[in-house]
Simulated assay, not measured.
Amino acid sequence: MSGLRYVYAVCRPFGTPLPAQLTGVAGVPPKQLVHHDLVAVVGHVPEGDFAEEPLRAHLEDLDWLGATARAHQNVIDALTVVTTPLPLRLATVFRDDSGVRTMMQERKQTFLRTLDRLDGRVEWGVKVYSEPEPEPEPEPEPGRTGRTGSGRDYLRQRRNQRREHEEKWEQAEQFARRLHESLSGYAEDTRIHAPQNAALSRAPGRNILNAAYLVPRTESEAFVELVDRTKDDAPGLRVELTGPWAAYSFSGEDA
């Protein structure tokens, strides 16, 4: 088949077939490209979309980018069920099979070391948010007609509100630290990511913890149970668990 080669991931050879109905980027089923003791999972994609110039333009199109990212992730998710994939970054494209094999040969030792480190492990993501606080009722300004109390009372009330907010925030940060320490006991490695931007994620509340955990599959059930138990221990906070994922945060690749 003509076209460029879109590379999803590099793996060790695996015998379990991927689902027959699985399609990837551009609606094309992924295939295995074997090179010695490595396998690249690839798809054929059209030059009209994935050559350098059209790809640069497409990456500015959020609808196209979102659809491509979902198709890419579908393949990675299917691979995670049958093997330990080393995901490559979105829109990793080569001219032909020879180019993919050359890449695998040049990076063979790095790929093998990373695959050994990730074998039998998955990534779990945990986020902690402070729930949005209700909007306070507007306070009448000091000195306005009909105000009960003095300006001093007004300032005292404002100070109390700020102190209460600071105490809640400190309690939330302490909860996030304790949770991270507990979850780290099940993980072989962790990553603390920058808090999510609420305008981009559209998740309500303020993101306090945004962490990834590299967890052996054998420990994943206990890890999930621990997260579930903590969800009721933090009134005013929301704990979100995602995964299991391929180990994007620990692969050394730009996921």
Rank of each mutant, 00 (worst) to 15 (best):
W64I: 08
P54H: 09
R70G: 05
T68H: 07
E53M: 10
D61H: 12
T84G: 06
V81E: 12
F50W: 08
L88Q: 02
L86Y: 03
V81F: 13
E52F: 11
A69R: 13
N74W: 07
H58Q: 14
R56F: 15
N74G: 14
A57V: 13
G66W: 03
V81M: 10
A69M: 09
A71D: 11
E53L: 08
A51M: 04
H72Q: 11
P54E: 03
N74F: 06
H58R: 14
H58F: 10
H58W: 08
E52W: 04
E52K: 07
A69Y: 07
A67Y: 05
D61C: 00
T84N: 06
H72M: 07
E52S: 04
W64M: 05
H58V: 00
L62W: 10
D63W: 08
V75L: 12
A71E: 09
E53V: 08
Q73H: 15
D61T: 02
A51Q: 08
D77S: 10
A69S: 15
P54V: 02
E60F: 13
H58S: 04
A67N: 04
E52D: 11
W64N: 06
L65F: 14
T80H: 08
V75Q: 03
A67Q: 12
P85W: 00
W64E: 08
D77A: 12
L79Q: 01
A51I: 06
N74I: 05
V75F: 06
L86H: 04
Q73D: 14
D63V: 09
V81Y: 02
A71H: 06
A69Q: 11
V82I: 13
L79M: 02
N74K: 13
L79Y: 01
P85C: 13
T83A: 11
A51N: 11
L65T: 07
P54M: 02
L55E: 03
A78V: 02
H72N: 07
A78L: 05
V81W: 05
V75N: 03
T84A: 10
H58D: 02
E60I: 09
P54Y: 06
L62S: 07
D61A: 07
A67M: 14
T84Q: 08
L65E: 03
A67F: 07
A69V: 12
A78G: 01
V82K: 01
A71R: 07
N74L: 14
R56A: 15
L88T: 01
A57E: 15
D63N: 11
A69F: 13
V82G: 03
Q73M: 15
V75E: 04
A57Q: 11
V82A: 14
I76N: 00
V75W: 01
V81A: 09
H58G: 13
G66Q: 09
P54L: 10
L59K: 15
E52N: 05
G66L: 04
T68G: 05
G66R: 11
T84P: 01
L86T: 01
Q73G: 12
L62K: 12
D61F: 13
L88W: 00
L62V: 12
W64A: 04
H72G: 03
L62F: 15
Q73W: 11
T68L: 14
